[in-house]
């Protein structure tokens, strides 16, 4: 690992100021960053340790939602009684990710900002536009079984690996950000991420020094919460395809629907047009297929990942069947 300067931040302002210049990175859980530094993929010159900042609380908002501090561990968030009771899809998504050890260390904001697990991003011997801009994409025309079928570009088809972020996207979460200049702002999680386009190395809209301080969940969504993850082994593996769903029945028809998808795209994927297909309709296989058609209208396979279109269609149908059982 390359040498770096270590700074333990005493406050949010201290952290953002120290991160604003040079090749600096915040470190909290460190489970992804240190992994990548050992492989010489992340090369920070300065690490700002934010792990002792007071950002580890889950608080109730006036609107009935939750404010989740950036440093709340994935384990604590999944186990929080309010999350288990009112935002089940989020608890389920978290529990499906990583291992017990990693969930104890990994933080909420770190999970959002984790890097892709594309084989080529992880292999400095081969070209990767995300790691070395302009070097080329080895996945296009190479091994791309785990890669994106939505939202990719000719420069990059890497997927975002988070489960947690998929559930948060379905819940319309927002992100609270503090800038190096001391200005706070809020943005929808969907607006945090950037699609790769011609600049796959730029993954979010955050500026140097910006620190995510919290994730805001709106008031609880009634209905059935389901997170279904399809992967190569039953535990401790990234999703090939995942579906986060919150479905509220209104008698025999679907009253409200939230859907987000993992494993398909460079960011947790939500397409409101898919939800619109379902609203006011009666559950049926034909309807599930119509929703999948809408989701996959722009889908593009690259050979080895062609199966994802079929897999997400089947997974979506299975989730929607389970979620749309008429409430008694």
């Amino acid at each position: 690992m390359r040498p770096f300067e270590y700074h333990r931040a005493g406050s949010v302002a201290d952290a953002t100021t120290h991160a604003a210049s040079g090749a600096a990175r915040f470190i909290a859980g460190g489970t992804n960053l240190l992994d990548l530094m050992k492989l010489d993929i992340e090369r920070p010159e300065r690490l700002i340790d934010i792990s002792r900042l007071p950002l580890d609380a889950i608080e109730e908002n006036e609107d009935g939602g939750l404010r989740i501090g950036a440093l709340v561990s994935n384990a604590d968030l999944a186990a929080d009684l309010r999350v288990r009771r009112d935002h089940g899809v989020l608890s389920r998504a978290l529990l499906s990710g990583a291992s017990g050890q990693l969930r104890n260390k990994a933080t909420t904001a770190g999970n959002l900002l984790q890097r892709t697990r594309c084989y080529y991003f992880y292999n400095p011997a081969l070209p990767c536009n995300k790691r070395e801009p302009g070097s080329g994409c080895s996945a296009i025309g190479g091994r791309n079984r785990i890669h994106a079928i939505l939202g990719g570009s000719a420069q990059c088809i890497a997927t975002h690996p988070s489960d947690m972020a998929v559930a948060m996207m379905a819940l319309s979460a927002e992100v609270e950000v503090m800038s190096a200049g001391g200005e706070g702002r809020r943005l929808p999680l969907a607006e945090l991420y950037r699609l790769p386009g011609d600049t796959p190395h730029i993954e979010t809209v955050l500026n140097p020094g910006d620190l995510i301080t919290a994730v805001l969940l709106p008031a609880p969504l009634k209905g059935r919460h389901i997170y279904r993850k399809v992967r190569d082994r039953a535990s401790y593996a990234f999703a090939l395809v995942s579906v986060a769903a919150v479905i509220k029945m209104d008698g025999a028809t679907i009253g409200a629907a939230r859907l987000a998808f993992g494993g398909l795209a460079p960011m947790p994927w939500r397409d409101r047009a898919v939800e619109d297909v379902l609203i006011g309709q009666s559950p049926s296989s034909a309807l599930w297929n119509k929703a999948a058609d809408r989701l996959l209208a722009e889908a593009k396979g690259y050979g080895e990942n062609d199966f994802k279109s079929v897999l997400v269609r089947k997974t979506l149908a299975s989730v929607l069947s389970d979620a749309s059982v008429r409430e008694i």
Binding site: Y6, I27, G30, L34, D35, D49, Q101, L102, N104, K105
Partner: peptide, 25 residues
């Protein structure tokens, strides 16, 4: 790299991968 668990220790009673965290923290 946090994949095998052989390095698991307890920190303040919680199990973690000791390979993926810095001693100075």
């Amino acid at each position: 790299h946090g994949q095998c668990g052989a390095c698991t220790v307890l920190v303040n009673g919680r199990r973690i991968n000791s390979c993926l965290t810095l001693a100075v923290m």
